[in-house]
Design a protein around this nucleic acid. Structure first.
Lengths: 327, 327
DNA sequence: TTGTAAGCGTTATCAT
DNA sequence: ATGATAACGCTTACAA
């Protein structure tokens, strides 16, 4: 590899001058500048980012720890984060915790070791111990989608309270009274909150907790549908569990919405293509990612960004049935 | 931050000894070892990965440049790569080229600057110029899913020739003669190959090229369906364009398979849930990611892994219609 | 304006 | 077995 020394030699200047030119300092004369640039070009020189970072203690890199890369909800967030970061000259290292607190902790540590300038985390669970490590390193941190108890850093998330209230209303209007809820894990803030907010709708709820992944959705649906007093509708609290539930319904030959109504938290492009199209609570994923990145960048710049609370909205399609008119 | 010096001081040894203990060298006595480890623990010391990498010229990091993160096909590959890499003590930096050759080149350069130990790339286009840069840095490279002209590095991909031949047969058996193909870009190897292989099926083909993304699928479908001699079936050469095509069919109120047949390259979990379920060519995404990572790791280890050619397979569901029995 | 040299936090060589 | 010390490639006082 060609180093700054080679360039200096080639241009007949010191390494300091090369560095100054490359970093846009005012000092160097136009003449030396062109000479150095020529040498850089000729040798195809590229600065070693490791050495530079070691010296400047800035990596221009953000760490993003998400709970599940194959969950399209997170994939979209990851993409938005990456875009926003790039627009500001930052690169993103994406780490996939796979909904495991252990793996998340491992990754946080790893990213800290690599001296990322900031950390964006969608916490796998409520366990806040890993945060201490981040704080100890004085690395800016922003929580995304989920929060953990006692977190003192900015949090970016979507508020689904209103949408879930409306959903309860829609279900009631369609004649549903007993509703089966495929809830997220009780040890995640989103798992708890969505359930609690939906519960305020006053429907008669049967709750089974899943783990935000596909299989658990199928399992939960199976359990709910096997109960003696079978619910007339199912609500899956994330898109993957919704997928699992749909698969289970299909296996059982149950028709939506006539045999059982269905609603899902998180919209997906293919939901409108189903027959009937699925009623959902849609989260502003792109904004969430963007805002999270923006907040982190602000934090890195020394500002004190406030929490961001976007709002999810209900999209009524056909999967919960029609309003019966009977109040 | 606490450095190796602090630990050395705390343990009453030299930094060299600390380093030796931490790197599992044989030299240190059990006694000093425990003393050092104690100090490490007490101070919560973690080695600076940048400094270490600068010294050792190894980052234990793989760069993965994919064409589109929100494409579930690539998301799944990314996840598999990451898993395999982690199992071998490597971390992965995922870069999203967004199907842009420019952005891809930029990212490759960026990853090279960060001194990744190896590079995994799903080339956005056939343009091979960026490869020279990789070679100049002597960084191991493996191509994934797509290849580029004159590439001398290992390539990992899925072969769909057989599956596409079978698909042509299935379509013909269902009475289709004129088939509209929503092809990938002509400047990608997969775009060309899939088209060419399917063309061997001897059907009467109408071809429109898309860009492997959702909107282009809708546009292409719209164009094909507006033609005077409208094809009786559509084949979308990747899942995102398939999604777009489905949306367009829906907009036009066209029923599958009665009004128009449909098949898609790449399987998706939700395809079986549609009515009718979609006939697809399924690629072994997880294996592709795993094999690619494995090949790269081998390359890094100094071996000369051969190209990997997995095979895609046809999954017949209902969207192409029934065999008519008329040969 | 430019060069010299120290230092970022490690690891590895060479003595001891 | 351990300790100095140079070196990795860069940036930045400080001098000149």
């Amino acid at each position: 590899m060609t180093t700054i020394k080679d360039v200096a030699q080639h241009a007949g200047v010191s390494t300091a001058t090369v560095s100054r030119v490359l970093n846009g300092h005012a000092a160097p004369t136009p003449e030396t500048r062109t000479r150095v640039l020529a040498a850089v070009d000729e040798l195809g020189y590229r600065p070693n980012a490791l050495a530079r970072s070691l010296r400047t203690t800035s990596t221009k890199t953000l760490g993003l720890v998400i709970s599940d890369l194959v969950n399209p909800f997170f994939a979209e967030i990851a993409r938005a984060v990456e875009e926003e970061a790039r627009a500001h000259g930052y690169c993103v290292i994406v780490a996939n915790a796979d909904e495991s607190a252990d793996q998340q902790a491992t990754y946080v540590r790893n990213l800290l070791d690599r001296r990322v300038d900031g950390l964006l985390v969608c916490p796998a669970t409520d366990d806040p111990t890993w945060i201490a490590e981040v704080d100890a390193n004085d690395v800016p941190l922003v929580l995304l989608d989920r929060t953990v108890e006692g977190a003192t850093c900015p949090v970016v998330r979507a508020d689904g309270a209103q949408a879930l209230a409306e959903l309860a209303e829609v279900l009631r209007a369609a004649g549903h009274r007993r509703v089966g809820v495929i809830a997220g894990p009780a040890d995640t803030s989103t798992g708890r909150e969505r359930l609690e907010q939906f519960a305020r709708g006053g429907l008669d709820l049967e709750v089974v907790h899943g783990d935000f992944r596909r299989d658990s959705g199928a399992l939960a649906a199976a359990e709910l549908l096997s109960r003696a007093d079978r619910p007339t509708a199912l609500v899956a609290m994330d898109n993957l569990m919704g997928l699992g539930a749909l698969e289970e319904l299909r296996r059982r030959g149950l028709k939506v919405p006539d045999d059982v109504g269905l609603a899902v938290y998180d919209d997906q492009p293919w939901f409108p293509l189903l027959d009937p199209p699925i009623t959902v609570v849609a989260q502003p994923t792109v904004e969430m990612g963007r805002e999270a990145a923006r907040s982190l960048l602000e934090l890195i710049a020394g500002a004190q960004p406030a929490d961001v609370r976007l709002t999810a909205r209900l999209v009524v399609r056909g999967s919960c049935g029609e309003a019966t008119g009977a109040a």
